[in-house]
Design a protein around this nucleic acid. Structure first.
Lengths: 188, 188
DNA sequence: CGCCGAGTTGAACTGAATCAAGAAACGTGG
DNA sequence: CCACGTTTCTTGATTCAGTTCAACTCGGCG
């Protein structure tokens, strides 16, 4: 649980009293691999910190799901758009490996925002950092070829390529599994 | 200037005292069309509200720029990632038409965050809303074909199609101007 | 052992990129 | 207000990367 505080303190200092209010709301949960954490159409109730494991975000499809994001150890995961708007989610969250989460509910987080000095700052920094992620992603999708995206993924996150089924990575970089298989062959 | 307050009040109520602190920092500026508001490599100093006009965000290229965003009247515009990190920007901002802005500097905004109750809330809500935009954009880029993106742009923002050069729209939806010209022909 | 999901490979097809040229619209100065 | 040059848009021909459909391999697991 201290890891969560460490994550926060990388971006903003936190008083012990604030940390206590926040951390008292956190609930630990464990999930086997391939557990669906949030189904299509449900509303996201939690912002979750991943102590251990990996989660993918995807739009379920008849044939191949459209996997558009991954989250790993020491990161937050949530259908954050659904969480913010409290509207039904247009995609699903599923664990890839066995996963341990620390979760705070939407309701409790609103209380933290109201009760702590630092609440809104944390909320702002969280949203800002998520925004930065998405910005990079947009540029990657517009600016790079699938092959270039694969190479940069490969260099930036080699463990991802090793641990995660190719078909998830394929749809993440925006091609079919067959095409990614050929890209791999080309560049190896 | 009241329009700015209206925009904010759509998402959060604002005390007069907070509004005074915020609005006292705003500086009005006017720019002819095709003015570069921020050059590649510069650091974004401002968060700007567009009173009138339109702005595009693009990565300059030898041949065709990669235009990846537009902002219009009554919206905020900024190289927000550069603004947040205060690192050099990897793209440029240019007015498309004659444009009137109300700008707040990064330094002044930090003061607003510090001095007003509502500052961090506004910052959070701003970042959250920008995050939601980017999320939709990601799904559109992964999930839809260029043709589908054009059609949905056409239905959601008909004035954009009318007012903005095709080549900007082309790169926004992720194709060359030639390809968009053909897409147009196909669907008309 | 046999099944099943994941990955690879092949062949035909397709939509967009590229290269190139011409038409239309735009704006700037005479 | 027209003329000229530039920019924007269109159209054609060719090339290419990725899709689709299909068959086959490999490894794990009931």
């Amino acid at each position: 649980m201290n890891k969560i505080r460490e994550q926060f303190e990388q971006i903003v200092e936190m008083k012990d009293s604030d940390w206590l209010i926040f951390s008292s709301k956190l609930i630990k949960s464990e999930h086997p691999k391939k557990t669906i954490l949030l189904k299509l159409g449900e509303t996201e109730k939690y912002l979750s910190f991943i102590e251990k494991g990996a989660v993918r975000l995807y739009i379920p499809k008849q044939e191949n799901d459209l996997t558009f994001g991954f989250c790993f150890e020491n990161q937050f995961v949530s259908a954050y758009d659904s969480f913010l708007s409290q509207n039904p989610c247009s995609y699903e969250l599923q664990t890839i490996t066995e996963t341990t989460l620390w979760q705070i509910s939407h309701k409790d987080l609103q209380q933290v925002y109201a009760q702590t000095e630092i609440g809104n700052t944390i909320g702002r920094l969280t949203a800002e950092s998520l925004f930065l992620n998405k910005s990079e992603r947009e540029q990657s999708l517009l600016n790079l070829t699938p092959e270039e995206r694969y190479v940069s993924l490969f260099t930036e996150r080699p463990q991802l390529i090793r641990e995660i089924p190719l078909k998830f990575i394929a749809s993440y970089i925006g091609v079919t599994p067959q095409a990614l298989s050929r890209i791999r062959k080309r560049i190896s």
